[in-house]
Design a protein around this nucleic acid. Structure first.
Length: 267
DNA sequence: ATGCCAGGATGATCCTGA
């Protein structure tokens, strides 16, 4: 089975491009982040026409995550147990953000995740991001404790560059989020809970990225960040036969600022 | 060997992204 994840930066703007991507790579399951629409606005017919079922959660123009599958889409779950809510902090709006959705596809539990952006080191959103990741670690650790053999994929936009060579120049990031020790520790804690980065061994750096800012010619200058990851439980990691970051999808007019990440699993 | 920011909402400008 072929599994992919992609921060599309608006599914309505890029539905045709995503459909072409699915066909071009013969993808079975695709996790999307930043769909930027409500459920009733998701262009589901584009994908159902190609044989994909869709599970989506989106409440507004912000965030939004989905799982598309042509090999079954069962036990859909919106948000993970204990997932923090940003707005609940001030008690104004307790509705959780649309940052996590799961489905079981061909026997694999796929979590499409959009980790909060910390914005700046001093912003309260950074604490929210760290709490969100810690809650994810606890939940994901619990899934493995319940079934150590479960094939689980935690995929998406983690908004963390875990290693120095996951950015083009560390000196640019000295006072930035994404590379700070607390963020990297939060990412490593999920790894330590039993989830391995299955792409890095097959697509090693330096200079291998999944995101390039739209501004300042970052893409043609090859100045990007590796912040999108597929983390696998032991049972899933043992089945990985290939991995690819599709840099081609970042090219041209109408590209997302993220490239898709693709993983092949033996059946 | 790619191209100088994009999307969405509201209504020409602001918020967000990383």
């Amino acid at each position: 089975m072929r599994l992919a994840t992609w921060n599309v930066n608006s599914i309505r703007t890029r539905a045709d491009r995503v459909a072409a991507f699915l066909e071009r790579h013969d993808v079975d399951v695709l996790a999307l982040q930043e769909t930027k629409c409500r459920d009733d606005q998701f262009p589901e017919m584009v994908f159902s026409a190609l044989g994909y079922e869709v599970a989506h959660v989106g409440h507004s123009q912000w965030n939004g995550v989905a799982v598309l599958s042509r090999i079954g889409l069962d036990d859909v779950e919106v948000g993970f147990p204990g997932m923090p809510s940003w707005s609940s902090k001030d008690g104004v709006d307790p509705a959780p953000e649309a940052r996590a959705i799961a489905a079981t596809c061909g026997g694999v539990r796929v979590w499409s995740l959009y980790v909060p952006n910390g914005r700046t080191l001093a912003d309260p959103h950074l604490q929210y991001k760290l709490e969100w990741l810690e809650a994810l670690r606890v939940a994901a650790g619990g899934w493995l404790a319940a079934d150590p053999q479960a094939p689980i994929a935690l995929v998406g936009d983690w908004n963390i560059a875990p290693q120095d060579d996951d950015v083009w120049d560390m000196s640019v990031f000295t006072h930035s989020t994404h590379v700070s020790p607390p963020e990297r520790a939060a990412f490593q804690a999920v790894v330590d809970a039993g989830y391995a980065d299955v792409v890095r061994p097959l697509a090693p750096g330096p200079g291998v990225f999944t995101y390039w800012d739209y501004t300042q010619l970052r893409f043609p200058r090859r100045e990007g960040m590796r912040i999108d990851f597929v983390l696998g439980s032991p049972a899933l990691t043992g089945r990985v036969t290939g991995a690819l970051i599709d840099r081609e999808e970042r090219k041209g007019k109408g590209a997302s600022d993220h490239a898709p990440v693709i993983v092949d699993l033996e059946d």
